[in-house]
Simulated scan of single mutants.
Amino acid sequence: MSGNSRLCVAVHVLTWMALDQRDSAAVATSQRIAVSVNTNPVVIRRCLGQLREAGLVRSQRGAGGGWHLAHEPESITLLDTYLAVGDDEPLFALHSSPPSDSCPIGFGIQPALRQVFGRLDEAVRRELAATTIADMLCDVLAQQPATA
Rank of each mutant, 00 (worst) to 15 (best):
R119Y: 12
P98D: 10
P90I: 10
M17G: 07
D23H: 15
D20H: 02
G66W: 09
H71A: 06
W16Q: 06
G108W: 13
V37Q: 02
R125Q: 10
A54S: 03
L141Q: 15
R45A: 09
T81L: 05
G49K: 08
P41I: 07
G108Q: 14
P73K: 03
G65K: 03
A25T: 14
T29V: 10
P99S: 08
R46V: 13
A129V: 00
S30R: 09
S100H: 13
G106I: 12
V42R: 14
L128I: 06
A10V: 09
I105M: 04
I105V: 15
V42Y: 10
R114G: 00
A28S: 15
T131L: 02
A142K: 10
R45M: 05
C47G: 00
G108H: 13
R58V: 11
V116W: 02
T147D: 07
D135G: 01
M136F: 02
Q31K: 15
S100T: 11
I33L: 09
P41C: 07
V43I: 14
L51F: 05
Q144S: 10
S36Q: 11
Q144W: 15
L51P: 03
T131F: 05
R126A: 08
P99Y: 13
L69Q: 01
A148N: 08
R58E: 14
C103P: 06
L69S: 01
V37C: 05
S102A: 06
V85H: 04
E74I: 05
R126C: 03
R125A: 02
V37L: 08
G66M: 07
N40P: 00
H12W: 15
E74S: 11
L69F: 04
